[in-house]
């Protein structure tokens, strides 16, 4: 059994308008997605801005009211509030937020911020609690003198470490990491990613790692789902996605990874333009009449793509993949 099983999850936000303030339409932030997260793995969820990644992540920690579908944890559907409460669900599933500054209460000291989940879920004695907070700070590489400071006294990278410390405090089984490093510069990104990996090894945590950047995900994730306008367009292992991408949207995201080798800049640019041209020309092949992604079809035991069956098979054989 997987740690988390997401089945046909939909989150629609109603749009109200008119004199009676009635629901006239809805934003389909998440529109029917299905995937599983295994214990101990890092699952990547990638897509451009506005594709519904954060909404998916928030649904999994129970912050979002889902429209339909289910999320199973230990066989219980945690989209229901009372199931979450019975399981003490958030003791096991925590979140690291996209914006580190806004995710830390500016009026609280670091000690109180990190101790918050401990106070609600573990009820330690005062000394034990303080000790645990100091240990957590130590694990994420911050000094003890951070204890009585306020969030604005730290740099972005340090704040994200504090966010990680809070998420790890109750020793959870799964952490939703919502673009944990996208606001940081490259060298700090690498540091934060490395200690997130270290923590994963030491505590046996799974991550749902959300990002818009396939370059970052490559170093973190074994399995990856590509999200586009609320739907998944491709699911596969790292190997499948990086070496045999099938959907044009995935190819675009891959082409958007910045090329660091100066000598290959020109070639990289040419290939990016080529992908962009195919994307412009072949929209109708990759999306249905409404411009939405097709349902997923399996092309290998690990690899699925959102295309009509025939096209998917054809593309897959071109890529030389083993057929399912």
């Amino acid at each position: 059994m997987s740690l988390i099983e997401i089945k046909d999850l939909k989150v629609h936000y109603p749009i109200r308008s008119g004199f009676w303030n009635r629901v006239t339409d809805s934003v389909k932030a998440v529109d029917g997605i299905t995937f599983n997260i295994e214990a101990g793995e890092t699952y990547g969820l990638v897509g451009e801005s506005g594709s519904g990644k954060s909404t998916t992540g928030k649904s999994v920690v129970g912050l979002e009211k889902v429209t339909s579908g289910s999320i199973l944890y230990n066989g219980k559907d945690i989209t229901k509030k009372e199931n979450r409460r019975k399981l003490d669900y958030n003791r096991d599933v925590q979140m690291i937020f996209q914006d580190s500054l806004s995710s830390l209460n500016p009026r609280k000291r670091i000690e109180d911020i990190i101790a918050e989940p401990l106070r609600n879920f573990e009820h330690l004695s005062k000394d034990d609690e303080k000790l645990r907070v100091l240990q957590l700070l130590n694990i994420v590489g911050l000094d003890a003198d951070a204890l009585y400071k306020y969030p604005h006294q730290f740099s972005g990278g340090q704040r994200q470490r504090i966010g990680v410390a809070r998420a790890v405090a109750t020793n959870p089984k799964l952490i939703i990491a919502d673009e944990p490093v996208s606001a940081l510069d490259l060298s700090v990104q690498a540091q934060v990613l490395n200690f997130m990996k270290k923590i994963q090894r030491e505590f046996g945590i799974s991550y749902l790692f959300i990002s818009h950047d396939l370059g970052v995900v490559r170093h973190m994730c074994n399995n990856i789902a590509i999200m586009n306008r609320g739907r998944l367009v491709e699911i596969g292992t790292r190997e499948d996605i990086y070496n045999h991408p099938l959907h044009i949207y995935t190819k675009r995201l891959l082409a958007a990874i910045p090329e660091t080798n100066v000598n290959q800049r020109a070639a990289h640019r040419a290939s990016r333009l080529a992908v962009e041209k195919i994307y412009e020309d072949q929209q109708s092949k990759y999306y249905d009449e409404d411009g939405m992604a097709y349902p997923l079809v399996q092309v290998s035991p690990t690899h699925s793509v959102a295309l009509p069956e025939a096209i998917a098979k054809q593309l897959a054989s071109q890529e030389g993949e083993v057929q399912a």
């Binding site: 928030k58 920690v61 129970g62 912050l63 003490d88 958030n90 003791r91 599933v93 925590q94 979140m95 937020f97 996209q98 914006d99 806004s102 995710s103 830390l104 209460n105 500016p106 918050e116 989940p117 609600n120 879920f121 966010g163 809070r166």
Partner: peptide
């Protein structure tokens, strides 16, 4: 709307 409120919710407050 700020994330610290969401964080408090997931912290069980």
């Amino acid at each position: 709307q700020k994330d610290y409120v969401a964080a408090s919710k997931t912290s069980g407050t």
